[in-house]
Design a protein around this nucleic acid. Structure first.
Length: 668
RNA sequence: GCUGGCGUAGCUCAACUGGCAGAGCAGCUGAUUUGUACUCAGCAGGGUGCGGGUUCAAGUCCCGCCGCCAGCUCCA
């Protein structure tokens, strides 16, 4: 069994968002049985009783009590959860044999997981939506009932709802004697509630996507069909959310990568980016910023091999815990591994000679190329690749240096994210139930991490028991301008690997001591970070990172010489400058430069050549009056040298965290 | 990996129920010498992802593989 992207839990920081399991090989439910007869549409909006409703005929339902004094988030949650029930009823009308899994409200919407005799297609969404609208229009009341567990078992068993029986078993396991049921029209569900008073309250919803999910999210369980929807209190909110979805689609980094000619993917190397000259310029610029920062902050950079005998990973534990994610090469009788993380080989560097306490903290960075054998279905543009680079570093410290060193690392986090106009949030994860090492060492380390966090003045949340077995950690999530959260950076303490690699340093009393290792990455993977940055900026990168920083646009061939003169002058400062020397009209060239989101367009014609000036147009602000060459030269050099975030990032509202709206006290 | 969808020119996409593979952009050639988001004309470009099969006939139907996209975080 194997988790995707679970590496953050095992020696070496890698951001994780999703986890999927390797299949344990259990056969999955057949979902595409098209021979199954399509039921007659129940046009009466469910007037003929469903099996569920028949089974629940004896249950005494009473009016649903709507809670008072809720927050907007609670109201939305109730609204969406109710929408999930209506969705389920609509599906039940279409498929009387539907078996229902779970149908919760989630961030920005709701879903229902359903086992159906055939796969749903997008056209089905329209039909489901049509039926939902009908149910909503009828304004069926939501009614609640409390029944003994056994009665619920009989009811759902009789209605052939096996998944609900499993949920009932789980509830029974919690020692509860009764469960609550909710009913609207012909649909009855096991549900804790609360719900809206009637289906009539659910006016502003839309089904958004179809997908699949394992029952209980466990690989090997049957795969259910998941229908996603969104629901809101007002039409405006719904429209704004749908607009947000559109905007997010436009900012898809894979699409921008193609449009801006930054990188490609090729079936011959799945999961590995091919960087174009433009894209590689961005990557290189980011790397050189990173190297500059590492030098400033007292790190040494090493460059180690990419291929190792398996012995190294047996020693580090990766071969046992991480083998499925590693590319393994058999060469004659020897097994080699492509390195999936920088830590083990960095440790070989540490132990390559005798270390003194005077060397600590020893900060060792490595940005080598890593390979991880991610399962095919997990690959996703630059966000999840099989080959990538990390801004990885390992810091070898004495226990008493933990606090100050963590503080330093947090300061790098601040520096980096501030550079891109991103906000971030911190989480401290503490000792899990199963841990290695001495509890006292953990307590001290956690206290040090807290102290360092407090010293930064930033707020942070606690994930008690969320640490890795080998040490506590701090995870950092960044927010992009669409309010989406990304985990890039992590800072982890490690008590385990110093033992595995028998790391030592000689203390001032001439006795050997064990160092602690801090793993840290701030960009995380450079590939992924560039993906996030593209989505954050919509592809308009700040001048210092832009693939081409300025394009000189001669008005006609007559101004070509002057154009090159300007370009060479700027290039002499190391700027990335091109001349658009094609014999096209300038409008055409401007359009092209705009579409490539080039920060500076320098228009030169005969007027400019005569006066030794340029007409500046910027991507951000449009055309400016003619100006001196010196002025624009100084300006570009300045924003590049200072790495100014000179792009407009239009923040879109984040929906569920929005303040209370005026229409709030409407009763549902 | 699993479920579903998709794969046609460098890119974006057409081709009704199987019946002559098309367009725009990009590219090339020529003309044009242009003042802030597309100048005109011509040319070239394809065993329709790969491998099998059905058929008089396959881009289209069937099987297998490869790749891409979405879902596989929220658990009454």
């Amino acid at each position: 069994m194997r988790r995707i992207g679970s590496s953050a839990r095992l020696l070496g920081p890698l951001p994780t968002r999703q986890r999927f399991l390797r299949p344990p090989g259990r056969p999955l439910q057949a979902m595409n049985d098209l021979s199954a007869a399509q039921p007659e549409p129940a046009e009466q909006g469910g007037e003929s009783p469903s099996l569920l409703a028949q089974m629940a005929a004896g249950v005494a339902f009473a009016n649903n009590r709507v809670p008072e004094g809720e927050t907007r988030a609670q109201r939305l949650h109730r609204l969406r959860h109710s929408a999930a029930h209506v969705l389920a009823e609509a599906v039940l009308q279409m498929f009387p044999e539907a078996k229902f899994g779970a149908g919760p409200a989630v961030e920005n919407g709701f879903y229902y997981d359903i086992d159906l005799p055939r796969s749903l297609v997008p056209a089905d969404l329209e039909e489901i939506e049509r039926r939902m609208k009908k149910i909503i229009k009828r304004g069926w009341p939501f009614a609640a009932a409390q029944v003994p567990l056994d009665e619920a078992r009989q009811l759902f068993g009789g209605a052939n709802q096996g998944y609900k029986l499993e949920i009932l078993d789980k509830i029974a396991g919690r020692g509860e004697a009764t469960v609550s049921l909710f009913r609207q029209n012909q649909f009855v569900d096991l549900c804790a509630g609360p719900h809206v008073s009637s289906t009539g309250k659910l006016k502003f919803f839309k089904l958004t996507k179809l997908g699949a999910a394992y029952w209980q999210n466990k690989a090997g369980n049957p795969m259910l069909q998941r229908v996603y929807g969104t629901a809101w209190e007002t039409q405006e909110d719904l429209d704004a959310y749908l607009h947000f979805l559109e905007e997010a689609k436009k900012r898809n980094h894979k699409r921008l990568g193609e449009q801006l000619d930054l990188f490609h993917f090729h079936p011959e190397a799945p999961g590995a980016a091919f960087w174009t000259p433009r894209g590689f310029a961005v990557l290189q610029t980011l790397l050189s910023y990173w190297r500059d920062q590492q030098r400033r902050r007292g790190y040494q950079e090493i460059f180690n091999p990419m291929l190792y005998k398996k012995d190294l990973y047996i020693r580090s534990g990766h071969y046992k815990h991480y083998k499925d994610d590693m590319f393994i090469i058999h060469q004659e009788d020897t097994e080699y591994c492509l390195k999936p993380m920088n830590c083990p080989d960095t440790f070989l560097y540490y132990t390559s000679k005798k270390r003194s306490f005077r060397e600590l903290p020893l900060r060792v960075a490595e940005g080598g190329i890593l390979h991880r054998n991610e399962v095919a279905g997990a690959l996703n543009g630059l966000f999840r690749v099989r080959q990538f680079m990390q801004d990885d570093a390992h810091i070898f410290v004495m226990p008493e240096q933990v606090e100050s060193e963590i503080f330093e690392v947090l300061d790098i986090v601040r520096e980096v994210y501030a550079l891109f106009g991103m906000s971030w949030s911190l989480t401290l994860s503490t000792r899990p139930e199963s841990f290695m090492g001495e509890a006292a060492l953990w307590d001290q380390a956690e206290a040090d991490l807290k102290a360092a966090l407090d010293k930064t003045g930033e707020k942070y949340s606690l994930d008690v028991g969320g640490g890795a077995f080998y040490g506590p950690k701090i995870d950092i999530r960044i927010d992009d301008c669409l309010g989406r959260k990304w985990q890039c950076a992590t800072i982890q303490l490690d008590f385990q690997q110093p033992l595995n690699f028998d790391m030592k340093y000689t203390a001032s009393d001439n006795t050997p001591h064990r160092p602690i290792v801090i793993h840290r990455a701030i960009f995380g993977s450079f590939e992924r970070f560039i993906g996030v940055l593209l989505e954050h900026t919509g592809g308009a990168l700040p001048t210092w990172l832009s693939p081409v920083q300025a394009v000189v646009v001669p008005i006609s061939d007559k101004s070509l010489d002057y154009a090159w003169q300007i370009a060479k002058r700027l290039q002499s400062h190391g700027l990335r400058v091109e001349v658009d020397d094609r014999s096209e009209k300038m409008g055409y060239k401007i359009r092209e430069a705009e579409m490539l989101k080039t920060p500076y367009m320098l228009v030169v014609g005969e007027k400019e050549a005569e006066t030794g000036t340029v007409s500046v147009r910027t991507y951000k602000d449009g055309a400016r009056p003619q100006g001196s060459v010196e002025a624009v030269e100084a300006e570009i050099c300045d924003v590049v040298a200072r790495r100014v975030f000179d792009v407009e990032v239009k923040p879109l509202r984040t929906f569920d965290s929005e303040p209370e709206s005026a229409a709030a006290d409407d009763e549902y």
